[in-house]
């Protein structure tokens, strides 16, 4: 786990603070911190709010008479005091938010840099209504199934043949837009062999709900064997029942 994908990372990326490794690790570790802090802040703030709403409910405050300065109809609006408390809370929240985001920004740089070209596998993915086509470096194309080796970083160049789609493999925490006329890049690495599902994350028409592809993560040697058997121009198609159901919806 946690194989260093980027050989030439700047120093701050090599410190333990910034999560590195597969995108699953990156996402899970950041999400966890956010969830924890978010819940904490939410509970504290909402708790404080409820407590004060109860404490200062009408008829409950003994000192009510002391605070005689209540708003009066027709007065020009002014504010109450308490600016110091407001400023303190504001700066506290600012520090939390800004430091959280800065921390994730370092991870963003790591994610954006991606794995180096020489140890990764480049695959082109193209979305269409309603499925995914993949093209391997040797020209082999597959439709509806993406075979990749475990442990090796995969770099995807994603585009679309028709409308705006979005390619995502939720379990591997990879996602990018598939835009006609544009190419986006993303990367991921699968450490566990098995079968995953890629899905479309942008509304793209009648078959959107069923626009998926199989992602088969193979042991590296098996993958090598399979890849040797393919060649320029060969192709393979896994047409699921889902895709054929919407084939008539495709424009000519």
């Amino acid at each position: 786990m946690g194989t260093t994908l980027v050989g030439s990372s700047p120093l701050f990326l090599q410190s333990g603070l910034v999560p590195r490794g597969s995108r699953i690790i990156v996402f899970e570790s950041i999400f966890e911190v956010f969830l924890l802090l978010g819940t904490l802040v939410g509970v504290v703030v909402i708790g404080y709010m409820l407590y004060n709403a109860y404490k200062y409910r009408s008829g409950a405050t003994k000192g009510d008479e002391e605070v005689g300065d209540r708003p009066v109809l027709g007065e020009l609006p002014t504010g109450s005091g308490g600016g110091r408390k407001l400023a303190t809370s504001f700066f506290m929240s600012m520090i939390i938010v800004v430091s959280l985001i800065s921390w994730t920004y370092l991870t963003l740089l790591y994610v954006e840099e991606g794995p180096s070209a020489d140890n990764s596998l480049d695959i082109e993915a193209e979305g269409y209504q309603f499925g995914w086509r993949f093209t391997y470096p040797n020209g082999h194309t597959t439709d509806g199934v993406l075979r990749i080796p475990a442990e090796q970083p995969v770099r995807l160049q994603v585009t679309s043949a028709d409308v705006f789609h979005n390619f995502g493999i939720p379990e591997l925490r990879v996602k990018t837009d598939a835009i006609p006329g544009q190419e986006t890049e993303t990367w991921f690495v699968a450490n566990e062999t098995g079968t995953y599902t890629a899905q479309c994350y942008e509304l793209c028409g009648a078959g959107h709900s069923y626009m998926s592809a199989e992602v088969i993560v193979m042991p590296p040697d098996e993958y090598e064997e399979w890849y040797e058997s393919t060649g320029n121009g060969s192709s393979e198609s896994v047409s699921t029942e889902n895709q054929t159901a919407f084939v008539e919806a495709r424009p000519a």
Partner: peptide, 17 residues
Amino acid sequence: ITGVFLGAVVLDYEFRG
């Protein structure tokens, strides 16, 4: 609070859609 999650681009990448 849940919006701050989306402001972190790395998380946004996964929350998108």
